[in-house]
Design a protein around this nucleic acid. Sequence first.
DNA 1: GTCATGAATTGACCCGCATCAAACAACTTC
DNA 2: GAAGTTGTTTGATGCGGGTCAATTCATGAC
Lengths: 226, 226
Amino acid sequence: MKTLRLTMSDRAILLSARFFARLPRTAAEAILEGATVSTHEAHDTLFRQDDPTDDVIVVLSGLVRLFRLGKDGREADIAVSQKGEMIGVNAVFLDRRATANAQAAEPSIVARLEGGKLRQLAAEDSDVAQALLELVCHHGKMTEDCLAEDRLLTAPQRVANYILSHCPIGSESFSFRLPFQKNVLAGKLGLAPEALSRAFSTLRRSGVIVKGRMIEIRDRQALEQF
Amino acid sequence: MKTLRLTMSDRAILLSARFFARLPRTAAEAILEGATVSTHEAHDTLFRQDDPTDDVIVVLSGLVRLFRLGKDGREADIAVSQKGEMIGVNAVFLDRRATANAQAAEPSIVARLEGGKLRQLAAEDSDVAQALLELVCHHGKMTEDCLAEDRLLTAPQRVANYILSHCPIGSESFSFRLPFQKNVLAGKLGLAPEALSRAFSTLRRSGVIVKGRMIEIRDRQALEQF
DNA sequence: GTCATGAATTGACCCGCATCAAACAACTTC
DNA sequence: GAAGTTGTTTGATGCGGGTCAATTCATGAC
């Protein structure tokens, strides 16, 4: 891990991230005050569950996996964050202890914002507070979605859902490239890699073609009723 | 369902709820401005998933179950809220559509606060914004906990966890009364009622005694390493 | 080109829990 | 009290998916 200052292009990425985009420029700049940047190899740990921490992390490039550890060492993914997404907001507004482990899933660059500064700005600037509220609500909803999917859907259904969520509305057939290894996708969906593989092969019968990271679907209807 | 105005004791319950307790009195009073109260029978639906809504609900008494519906009609509980807990905050700060169904799990009384007013106050009063942020972060963490439990723990482990979460630290043996039907507990833990029953009977071998709604534990150690 | 390493797939097996059905217990309601 | 209603437990069975092991595929090093 190397620590650096913010370059201009880092700033540009940050300012175009969902959270900052809705803020007035001055507020966004104020938050970035004092931010640092670091680069990480795949499998680097950014922070550990229950560690005291007062940083919010923004992914600038690469991929960060957020997961909890079971007593037996098994891992359960809570979220997978890519460029522009924020991590650790909950902790900063609760007890300043990480709620999960964070680990780079591929070579990654992240920015660290000071939690103290964020709290202070949230108190002074209602735009910031508003943006944070929306962000956290959105995170909450994502997690709810995940929980509901886990409880209601089988593996092929979850995968079908994931594929459909990448399909522009209206198009009947289309294709896209997985944004990360199947490995990671499996974790995100709460599956073992083998189960993901089997799910794909089940979906083949419904017109899903998988070649490496490329996914192609030929019959949207069939997917939806899965 | 009957709609009423706030009584004095309703006010008292609200003001002592976690969310309001940390607010200055005037801010709390301002939020309660325009609140209404309604009573519900068991199984009454308070709102439905995807329904447009702009209310935040506070449970005054009874129990409200929050769940998503699968295509096949199966239900997945997202949360179970008791006295003093708030529901629907996410929706009010996102797209004003309910993210789940809400249903009274027993005869219940709830207060409805206007989402518009809440948004307005959050923008004007940083105390309110702060309290909301903490509330939503807390909700988010609860949901994360739930997701991680689902993925990492077996049924008996989840039940053991639940019991331990009601056990005052340090005490080696103790007993308490379930705050709701086993039915509801099963849903909250993501189990079928039968599975909960079997989990209890497994835990009997570790010193857990179940009589109706009363739970008694004799050996905390045994529970913890389950 | 060969070789080495890690990812993805496939098969075999097993465990956990949902489901269905039926017995039982605990409350209502009259 | 009796009888109906609703919640809980127990048993039998089947499916989903986790785990382990072996193979195939992809990628990069040399």
